[in-house]
């Protein structure tokens, strides 16, 4: 029984036995590129901000054990941004990727712990961070590129799915089923409206907030749909349900944005990138274009996807 479950889960998350297509390799490189681009973006965005921080208010992660205030002055955070950038780019271009990606993860964590030492716990970079972490682990786990790709993406599906379920469970454990009571949404709308007022200098409600504030029943329904979508995040683990739950989670994030002014845009991009069947669509596109031209996969596609030699579309 247990063996059956683990075999099934392994097939759903990783599918090591399935043949790998060019579309799948291209999609993986796009996923990797996405993680690398955002890591570099945050390296410099956070790196410059860290220089303006005067002191640690709430230590996070490694900052509980290491005084990260050395990052705040003399351009140290910018040096760390440079280190992170170099290591992650070396990893992307497959220069000792196992080591360079591993060192990039450490630099990234130190960067996060320094940037968010003022008290706010920001989750916007969580999925990208998990992706960057999965890359070196996949390389320590296997020497075979196909297995590495399957493991990295499978681990990301696993932890993102688990994250959504964990978010739903946290609510139910902390508050119970009464969490969905509509007045709770009213309080959050009030709270987040003040945040928006402070950020942009304008105090107003949008149509969804007005709609929710007009009735407890409506706001209760909005919260119920939200928590059910989160709890269904586990469906990201399964190939058949993955595209549907990815789109549902994207919808939930738009709902959060409209009702609470919190935009998880990186989550949305990543959900669309890993949740939708881009591999199949890319294969279909390649099949169509190869049928009308030379019959071969374009060289730039092969180079981007790190194809070893004359692959066949499957």
């Amino acid at each position: 029984m247990w063996k059956k479950i683990t075999t099934r889960m392994s097939d759903e998350l990783f599918g090591f036995d399935r043949p790998e297509t060019t579309g799948e390799r291209v999609r993986f490189r796009l996923f990797e590129l996405f993680a690398v681009v955002y890591a570099v973006y945050w390296a410099w965005d956070w790196g410059t901000y860290i220089q303006s921080i005067e002191g640690v208010v709430l230590p996070l992660g490694i900052a509980n054990h290491l005084d990260v205030s050395f990052m705040f002055n003399n351009g140290v955070s910018l040096v760390n941004a440079g280190v992170l950038t170099v290591f992650i780019l070396l990893g992307f271009f497959r220069v000792a990727p196992k080591w360079t990606y591993s060192l990039a993860v450490l630099a990234f964590h130190l960067h996060y712990a320094s940037r968010y030492s003022l008290g706010e716990i920001c989750h916007a970079s969580q999925f990208v961070g998990m992706s960057v972490l999965a890359l070196p682990i996949s390389m320590w786990f296997s020497k075979e590129p196909k297995t590495q790709r399957r493991f990295a993406l499978g681990a990301v599906y696993f932890f993102i799915g688990l994250g959504y379920v964990s978010a739903a469970l946290s609510k139910l454990i902390a508050t119970g089923p009464g969490w969905i009571q509509g007045r709770h949404l009213w309080l959050w709308i009030g709270e987040k409206s003040i945040d928006a007022y402070s950020k942009f200098g304008v105090l107003e409600h949008n149509w969804l907030q007005e709609f929710a504030l007009s009735s407890v029943t409506i706001s209760t329904m909005i919260l119920a749909v939200g928590i059910l979508t989160e709890a269904a995040g586990l469906l990201l683990w399964f190939r058949r349900t993955r595209p549907f739950i990815a789109v549902a989670c994207v919808g939930m994030h738009f709902g959060i944005y409209l009702s609470m002014n919190i935009m998880f845009d990186m989550f949305i991009y990543q959900l669309l990138l890993i949740g939708l069947p881009w591999d199949r669509w890319i294969d279909q596109w390649l099949n169509r274009s190869s049928a009308t031209s030379t019959g071969a996969v374009p060289r730039w596609v092969r180079a981007f996807a790190l194809e070893p030699r004359s692959p066949s579309l499957q």
Binding site: H123, Y164, S166, A167, K171, I173, A174, G178, Q181
Partner: peptide, 10 residues
Amino acid sequence: SIYPMFSQAG
């Protein structure tokens, strides 16, 4: 993360 944001309702 266990994503505890908004777990404390109301």
